[in-house]
Amino acid sequence: MSVLYVVLPIALLLLAGAIAAYAWAARRGQFDDLKTPAIRALHDDDTALRPGSDKTTPPT
């Protein structure tokens, strides 16, 4: 059972890490808009159409 004296501090360190990661994400605005990314994920990715490849040729 004395392993607890080692394991619990390690668990708390992990907790501190998780909180730090969360703080980083919240400060960077990852939670600012909780609605749109959920919708965006459902849309097909059309990176091929993204700028750089310019405008698609309209079907004639």
């Binding site: 909180i19 969360y22 919240a26």
Partner: peptide, 14 residues
């Protein structure tokens, strides 16, 4: 909003 989210997160985790 960000501060509030942070507060909730920290309080929740602890």
């Amino acid at each position: 909003d960000r501060t509030a989210m942070l507060r909730i997160g920290v309080a929740g985790a602890l």
